[in-house]
């Protein structure tokens, strides 16, 4: 076990370097580089040259990468090309809102997806299995912004059950439970939109995993012993069939973060995605770069965690 975890951690090191190298070279594509925000038509070529030297832009590219990496490790993600503020500070300011949304969607997709998948598998080829399969196709096919706009139209504008956008009203003066419920109303629709395709993925995966498990010899043994179908499914098959579902944990993290751009734009949710959408409009490459790098590292950590969890749950994993 310790050996596996060590090996997995060592494998992650080149990936971290790969992430930074890819990010660095994409940033090099940006017109004007890190100076874009500071150049005006009146900037003289000498002062531009001086600024380039001050930032080390005249040095060989490897040296530039090294310097950039050194700054990065010290927590300096650069400065916004639009308003000159620190990139990392802006991201961290928006992180909690996005985390709240993604974690809710994450939990939601497994809490809903797994039971549906298990039900589908135990009622294989029935009418409800067929219906759930079609539902899962719809789930992965519907564009999240269209789904979100539909929800806003029906539940916010027509029925007025939920607010259309944002995260809490500034005039609200409640505390404790009242505040929590107030915020919760804002969370429901975005979390639903974010989790829909993930619910579908988890469901399909849980279904096929459960079907595979039900074909195993030990399930046949349990049945031969005369156990009730309930005991066979919930005592013997369920736990084992859930092991592969852990791999979906890791895979769903990039999907959820990727969905943040869209969901947060549709619902005006004040998180990292909305920061990114603003940055797109302002052509603020530094912010976009910071966001991309930051999420890539989060995803890497998430995958590591999922793999390590997997090795705990499934002792057959050996390297």
């Amino acid at each position: 076990m310790g050996k596996y975890i060590r090996k997995r951690l060592l494998q992650a090191i080149p990936v971290v370097f790969g992430i930074t190298i890819l990010t660095f070279f994409i940033m090099k594509l940006a017109p004007g580089g890190p100076l874009t925000g500071m150049i005006s038509p009146r900037t003289s070529s000498e002062s531009l040259q001086r600024a380039r030297e001050a930032l080390g832009l005249n040095k060989p590219i490897i040296v530039q990468y090294g310097n950039w990496l050194k700054e990065l490790v010290q927590g300096n993600f650069g400065y916004s090309t639009y308003n000159g503020q620190e990139v990392l500070a802006q991201i961290l300011e928006r992180l909690p809102a996005t985390l709240l949304l993604t974690v809710t969607a994450f939990v939601f997709s497994f809490v809903v997806g797994i039971p549906l998948g298990v039900y589908s598998a135990t009622h294989k080829y029935s009418r409800s299995d067929y219906g759930l399969t079609i539902f899962s196709f719809i789930g992965i096919s519907v564009p999240s912004f269209f789904f979100g706009m539909g929800l806003i139209y029906v539940f916010a504008l027509k029925l007025k059950w939920f607010p259309t956008s944002g995260f809490g009203s500034s005039n609200f003066r409640g505390e404790g439970l009242a505040l929590f419920l107030h915020k919760l109303r804002y969370l429901v629709m975005p979390a639903l939109v974010m989790s829909l395709s993930n619910i579908a993925t988890v469901m399909r995966f849980a279904r096929s995993s459960m079907i595979e498990t039900l074909n195993q010899d030990y399930v046949r043994t349990a049945r031969a012993k005369g156990l009730s179908e309930k005991a066979v499914i919930y005592k013997h098959a369920l736990k084992n069939s859930m092991i592969p579902v852990i791999t979906i944990f890791g895979q769903s993290i990039p999907n959820l973060f990727g969905g943040a751009y869209i969901t947060e734009k549709v619902f005006g949710w004040p998180g990292m995605g909305l920061l990114g959408v603003e940055a797109i409009a302002n052509r603020d490459y530094q912010i976009l770069m910071g966001l991309t790098l930051f999420t890539a590292v989060l995803v890497l950590l998430g995958n590591l965690l999922a793999d390590i969890m997997y090795s705990f749950v499934d002792p057959r994993i050996r390297y």
Partner: peptide
């Protein structure tokens, strides 16, 4: 490791 949409957005913007 990169959410594909993030990667695509940054390149598309640049």
């Amino acid at each position: 490791c990169f959410p594909v949409l993030f990667l695509i957005i940054i390149i598309a913007t640049i």
